[in-house]
Amino acid sequence: MTTAAGAHGGHVDHEGARFGMWLFLFTEILLFGGLFILYAAYRARYPNEFHEAGGHLDAVIGVANTVILLTSSLTMAASITALRTGQRRRALASLAGTIALGVLFLVNKYFEWSGEIARGFYPDSPLLAGRPQGEQIFFGLYYSMTGLHGLHVMAGIVLLAVMLALVLRHRITGGEYHKLENAGLYWHLVDVIWVFLLPLFYLAA
């Protein structure tokens, strides 16, 4: 497989670049997969406690964030379509929209976590210490899994900001788009992970 170096008129292996990105995504799938397995094991052990603890989360914010991420996936895919069909301005607008939606997701996450913490639901809190062990485990998983996902959203926003700069500088074009396509693959995977987090935590009750 050959390194992509198209910006300098070199050899571009679109398929190789995409394949390499997918290999990275497999490691991400297995990383979160391990956490999903952990969740499944504890949910099977403490079904009632998980049901009870899920009721303390704000499902409205969870669903709103799902709509936000699904829409950001649409704008991400639209930016690639726009760039490849020669609509550079639309590609830039779609990409900027994707970044804005990612930021909105994190703002919602901030308010959600702040609300949970203010009500005393955080690891090792006096309130949780007095509740059943299953609920303590639920909140431990909730903060670690949504936190890890949030870090991925942050990384995605930085990555997309770099892509935006590269499109502005004509380093990414309709003919040389594999970097944007790979960034899009990453963003969509972050969306897929959230698709699974929604029912596990917010609709658990």
């Binding site: 198209g6 571009v12 398929e15 190789g16 995409r18 895919a77 690639i80």
Partner: peptide, 14 residues
């Protein structure tokens, strides 16, 4: 510029 490997299908907006 030399390009190898398949370029992905352009997904229509619709």
């Amino acid at each position: 510029m030399d390009r190898t490997g398949s370029e992905t299908h352009v997904m229509p907006y619709r």
